[in-house]
Each structure stands twice: as C-alpha cells, then as structure tokens.
C-alpha cells in the first residue's frame, strides 16, 4: 500500500491527478462558500448572513474537521503545484529566442503558477481578516462591512478574485483532462461549462467587494 502510493504520487500523471482532485474539491468548496456569502445581499441588515455564520459555528467539532479537511486540500494542491512547476522549469532550462506559440496556449493556462500564488497570498489576508479576527464571533456581518468598507481591502479582494477566476477558467477543463475525461462530443461542452462555472464564481465573489465599495465605501 505504502509503496504503491509512493510510486503513484512521484509519477507525473499521479502528481497531476492529486492536483486535479484536490483542485476540483476546492471548486466544490467555493460553490458552497459563495452560496453562503450571497446571503449578505438579503435586505435584512445582515440577519441571514449572521444566522448562516452561527449555523456553521454551531457545528462545533464538525466545523474543525471540515476546516482541517479544507486546509489539507489546499496543502496538497499547493505542494503538488510547486513540485510539478519546479519539475517543468527544470525540463526546459534552455530558452527559445522566439517564444514558441502554436495558438493553443492561453493567458490563463500560461499563468497558472502566478495566479495560484496570488490566490495564496490573498487567502492569507482573507484568513487574517475573517478567520483569525476575534470580532467575527460577535458580529460577522459588521466585521465584513467594517473590513470591506476600506477601499484598499476591497481592492485586495477584487485582485484576489480576478486571479482566482483566471486560474479557474483553465483549471476546471484541465482537471477533467488530467483525470482522463475526454470525448469528442462532450469535451468541448464540458470545457465551456468549466469556463462558465469559473465566471459565475468570479462574478459572484466580485459582487461583494464591489458592492462594499459602492454601498459602504467611505463610511469609515
């Protein structure tokens, strides 16, 4: 068992599969996260959002299990991303004078390590804002309002989400291919659905800091 796993995670295809599975599970988390966040927009002065946050907290130890699981997904994804990216740099040390382009590469596919890194930096700021701040317990909605009312904070969120959106426009279709899903009839459709989901998540998450800038901006 152990030797099998070692061989698997050291192989190029195995590493990519670990990234794809952890990445897709993270996409699943983002869908749930966005659904929860959108309760911010209900016209009830944050009552629904606070209730949603309270429900999560009431899970008690289950919440910790979920958080540890989520952390593990990020660690796996980032570790394999670093491992494969370093391997890929080593596989092409000699640079072309004319940068090769055969028309299939995209901005998204070419910047995956960079957009990933921006998402990671954003994630750290995001956790400091809302996970590590004691004030979240007392009033989640008030803390979100208080934090995002600052134009610099809102800007950080906008940049972070834009990087995530670009990351995901390549990532979702790419992960399916990595896991062996490719069919002449379905794949073009699935690739477009992947870009669509990336844009929905992107616009959904963007709506929050943009709303904050417009509705709360300058209020502190």
């Amino acid at each position: 068992m152990v030797t099998w796993l070692q061989t698997f995670v050291r192989s190029s295809v195995g590493k990519k599969a670990c990234m794809a599975i952890s990445g897709l599970l993270l996409v699943g988390f983002l869908v749930a996260h966005l659904a929860g966040n959108l309760t911010l927009f209900l016209p009830d002065d944050g009552a629904a959002f606070d209730a949603y946050a309270q429900k999560l907290h009431d899970l008690g130890p289950l919440l910790y299990v979920a958080e540890v699981g989520l952390l593990a997904l990020f660690v796996v994804h980032i570790a394999f991303a670093a491992w494969t990216t370093i391997g890929n740099r080593k596989a092409r040390t000699s640079r072309y004078a004319v940068q090769p382009d055969h028309g299939e590469r995209t901005v998204a596919s070419s910047t995956m390590p960079i957009t990933g890194l921006i998402v990671l930096l954003f994630l750290i700021v995001h956790l400091i804002h809302f996970r590590l701040d004691e004030r979240f317990e007392q009033g989640p909605f008030d803390l979100v309002e208080g934090t995002l009312a600052g134009p610099i904070a809102a800007l950080i969120y906008i940049v972070g989400v834009l990087a995530l959106t670009l990351h995901l426009t390549h990532a979702i279709g790419s992960a399916l291919q990595t896991l062996g899903v490719n069919h002449p009839r379905w794949s073009p459709l699935l690739r477009r659905a992947g870009v669509g989901l990336a844009l929905i998540l992107g616009l959904g998450f963007l709506s929050i800091p943009i709303y904050a800038l417009i509705a709360w901006g300058g209020s502190n």
Binding site: K15, K90, H102
Partner: peptide
C-alpha cells in the same frame, strides 16, 4: 520510463497537438 528521462508534467496547454 518517460518520467525517468526528465520530461516535464503536462498542464494541458495543448501546444503539442497544434505542433
């Protein structure tokens, strides 16, 4: 054998097929 030769990991750019 492919991994032992020092080739990189596919990130699905699809430049290969176009070339």
């Amino acid at each position: 054998a492919m991994d032992a030769e020092g080739f990189g990991n596919c990130t699905n750019h699809y430049e290969c097929s176009a070339a």
